[in-house]
């Protein structure tokens, strides 16, 4: 995973709450077995509407999505994170993320920045008044900057550290493999196994 310290890119205002993962990428795109190339599925249904924000050429290079509360609800599909990243997004800003989506973001290197709804409203207004304007997201200082707006964001310390260092979770866990083996030896013998009963 690439290290993430700071990112500056075009902000995209998405004035919707409850953007569920079926909207981020519909199920039909989940049939693929590859890990990349999901950008065509991103917001597939909404993109058919010419008025949808991503169809405005000014946002073509968008990389910081500013969305309403409860972003990423619903299905656990990590494809939602992949689709956002394949399209070019590096950061999603919302006042509240669904748990699984937020977890998936941290694994994939997409920064899910929790910003208060009041500040999201300010960012929306700023982006709508300055279409194509850039937002800077600084993970070191945990701030979002757009024009005169400087807003703090929240992210848990552990995910922040992993993103800053670009660390792979599995590699981190395997450092403690002896502890896993010790735990396994203490498991009750009646716990089920999936091999034939």
């Amino acid at each position: 995973m690439d290290k993430f310290e700071t990112h500056t890119g075009v902000g995209v205002p998405l004035r919707r709450s409850n953007v569920d993962t079926d909207q981020i990428i519909p199920a039909v795109y989940l049939k693929r077995v590859a890990r990349t190339g999901f950008e065509d599925g991103l917001f597939a249904s909404w993109r058919k509407d010419q008025a949808f924000v991503l169809n405005n050429p000014v946002y073509a290079a968008g990389s910081v999505l500013v969305a309403g509360p409860d972003f990423g609800t619903g299905s656990s599909r990590e494809h939602a994170v992949w689709a956002l990243m394949d399209y070019g997004f590096r950061v999603v800003i919302s006042s509240r993320f669904a748990d699984i989506f937020r977890g998936n973001s941290g694994k994939g290197g997409l920064l899910a920045a929790v910003v208060s709804q009041d500040n999201v409203e300010l960012l929306w207004k700023y982006l709508e008044n300055h279409p194509g304007a850039e937002i800077t997201v600084d993970l070191v200082s945990r701030t979002v900057t757009a024009g005169e707006i400087v807003a703090p964001f929240e992210i848990d310390d552990y995910t922040r550290w992993r993103l800053l260092e670009g660390l792979d979770d599995i590699g981190l866990t395997l450092r403690h493999e002896d502890e896993v083996s010790r735990f396994e030896q203490g498991r009750p013998s009646w716990k089920p196994v999936t091999t034939p009963a």
Partner: peptide, 8 residues
Amino acid sequence: IGTSEVEH
């Protein structure tokens, strides 16, 4: 869980 966690 997500796919990265499935792998984990």
